[in-house]
Design a protein around this nucleic acid. Structure first.
Lengths: 242, 242
DNA sequence: TGCCGCCTCGCTATTTCTGGGGAGTAAGAA
DNA sequence: TTCTTACTCCCCAGAAATAGCGAGGCGGCA
């Protein structure tokens, strides 16, 4: 399958994907990419900032249901492994050594998932996390050839899926609440790096009480229930960096 | 500048980038891309998991020094804005309304940064954060044409920069410490969403003391000084998701 | 089989955090 | 100018977290 000859058709597919306005159209885009590349499966899975999971792709419904029912999310080395990475990864390079992982793999292959796979993780500022996966049944050599040949396309497609998924997410992004003041940011940062209030106040050269005012203020702005929650939210929203 | 005619040359540039093994070579790759696209500046900036900042690109040293000296990191709407996004963004769409931001913009243009810019944020699991930026001096229309025409290339290039930068990062990724047990993860998650220890214990249907054991254990594994610190670390390392 | 890690539970004492209250200055926005 | 917002400081009582001590059962691994 020559890249150049198919480039215009790929462009058309990507444009179709970019204009998708529903999960159903993401689904049909998955099918289109699967057919285009002649692979067994193309899947896009994402977790929005509320922690809700979505998925679309060419997997059999039976497999998807089984996956959820069996709690494979906590076993699947693809999910676990890619969550720690931020570049595309071949399934062969993941850790399949645990017993649960091997059982999962066997089950997956039995459901036609494919012995080869290539997944691209992308993450967002508010805990959004997406995984674009292509899987296939073939030899290591064939798969190597496929992934090296289409790696760049796949990254691009993953990005496009991601952008569409983001738009489908209900408007959480637009500044849910007021921004933190500089001092509030500093105070929250001190707490996030493990300092007690007294230490943090000392570090910022202010009284402990003043620091407390900042923390309380930040907590209020973040709609957090306590300091730990506030720090967690500030981190998740990218307001502070540790 | 036709895309098709230059595609092979672009491929060569990307391959050159992918083989880079030092910051210096990233630097020269920036120059190559700048010349290829005929824009004023190409810059790549990243923050590794230790919070250390790096940058390379075609900006003048004078401007870089001034940027750091003036603390523009905390003012620059590109940094602040892109940190909240996870898709490419045109500088025009950022919030330049604050006084500090306008002053910064004026200073930036005076140092030849360019009135137009396009930045692509990418982030990693352990707080790594990267920004690939192309900036230029031209009209809105010209810039619009450039960004729509080269958007996909730029995303790809950003990814490649990212991958190289990751490889340059000293090996922090490989499991700095033991992983958290499932119950520890659940316990930390409960705290991260704002529950008190008593509430969290209730939610997990265990005694408060048991929950406390998990939290302490997690805190120990994470090398954290207190609960808030532990939650912050667990979040930063992607061990829990809120 | 023995070891190790995980999960579960109880008690006590000390330190720290939380959540109310109020009050004044300085700087930037309307 | 007026008004808001950010920043700074103080007190107090009750709630929560921390740091020790202890125990036993279960399951995987060598």
């Amino acid at each position: 399958m020559g890249y150049l000859a198919n480039a215009p058709r790929l462009d058309a597919l990507i444009e179709g994907l970019e204009s998708a306005d529903s999960i159903e159209r993401l689904q049909s885009a998955s099918v289109a990419f699967r057919d285009f590349y002649g692979v067994n499966h193309v899947v896009y899975h994402w977790v929005n900032s509320a922690g809700e999971q979505y998925g679309c792709g060419t997997y059999d419904d039976v497999w998807v249901d089984r996956y959820l029912e069996k709690g494979y999310l906590r076993v699947d080395p693809v999910i676990q492994g890619c969550y720690q990475k931020f570049h595309p990864i071949d399934w062969k390079r993941l850790d399949w050594s645990s017993k649960a992982a091997r059982a999962f793999l066997q089950d997956a292959i039995a459901h036609g998932v494919g012995n080869q796979g290539f997944s691209i993780p992308i993450r967002g500022p508010n805990g959004q996390y997406a995984l674009f996966t292509v899987s296939h049944i073939c030899s290591d050599e064939e798969w190597e050839e496929f992934t090296t040949g289409h790696r760049r396309d796949l990254i691009l497609i993953a990005h496009c899926f991601n952008q569409v998924a983001l738009q489908l997410e209900p408007g959480r992004a637009p500044d849910q609440g007021q921004p933190l003041s500089p001092r509030e940011v500093e105070a929250m940062t001190m707490l996030a790096i493990g300092l007690s209030r007294a230490q943090a106040a000392d570090k910022l050269s202010i009284s402990e009480h003043t620091l407390r005012v900042y923390v309380e203020s930040a907590r209020f702005k973040l709609g957090a229930l306590n300091t730990t929650h506030a720090v967690a939210r500030a981190l998740s929203r990218g307001l502070i960096v540790v």
